[in-house]
């Protein structure tokens, strides 16, 4: 089916959705690059909002509506708020942070490029020229995602739940431990 789709689709006559997908992708990439290069800490967090929001739009364009909203709910709504909370609690100066420059920047760049290359290679190898049929029945609705998740991916799902639970319990234990030792002093 994918082969057939590849034959009917060309790279030279893009549809509106494909153009939108590319443009949003460029914006997302740009925001992500600014996030790691800006010297203003809070601005970095805010650019991360743009990058993660752009990703949500990409999911939406790929008809994965449920995943898109969960992306907004978890990453934009909660993770970023937590990040900003942490920044405001510790250090969030207006303007440039002189210590925001890391000596590891070239190593970090190498790791980032390697990770990106590996991911792009895997994705390209897995999907090649598969096209999503936008006119057919939606393939990323909540119902479809739910069926996939709980029929084929139950074990990883449960494994993740246990991992998160362990992290939760660990965080509580750590925070209480310090309180106890302070009281003993």
């Amino acid at each position: 089916m994918s082969l057939l789709a590849a034959q009917t689709q060309g790279f030279l006559s893009p549809t509106g959705v494909e153009i939108a997908f590319l443009l949003v992708g460029i914006v997302t990439l740009g925001a992500a690059v600014v996030t790691v290069t800006t010297k203003q800490l809070v601005h970095a967090a805010l650019w991360l909002v743009v990058a993660l929001g752009g990703l949500a739009v990409e999911y939406l364009l790929l008809t994965a509506e449920f995943i898109a909203w969960v992306q907004v709910l978890i990453y934009v709504g909660s993770v970023i708020v937590l990040l900003l909370f942490g920044l405001m609690l510790t250090r969030a100066p207006i303007g440039r942070s002189p210590d925001a420059d890391s000596g590891n920047r070239w190593v970090a760049l190498g790791v980032a490029v390697a990770a990106a290359a590996a991911l792009v290679w895997v994705v390209v190898d897995a999907f090649r020229a598969t096209w999503i049929d936008l006119d057919g029945p939606a393939r990323g609705t909540t119902e479809v995602s739910g069926r996939m998740l709980f029929r084929h991916w139950v074990l990883p799902f449960e494994g993740l739940s246990v991992l998160l639970l362990a992290a939760l319990v660990g965080a509580i234990v750590l925070s209480r431990l310090r309180k106890d030792t302070e009281e003993k002093r």
Binding site: W69, L73, V76, T142
Partner: peptide
């Protein structure tokens, strides 16, 4: 399609304004 998630997700973004 995922209305409940949509409304809760987008409502959560509003707080970023106050922050």
């Amino acid at each position: 399609d995922a209305g409940v998630f949509f409304v809760l997700a987008v409502m959560g973004v509003g707080v970023l304004g106050s922050l």
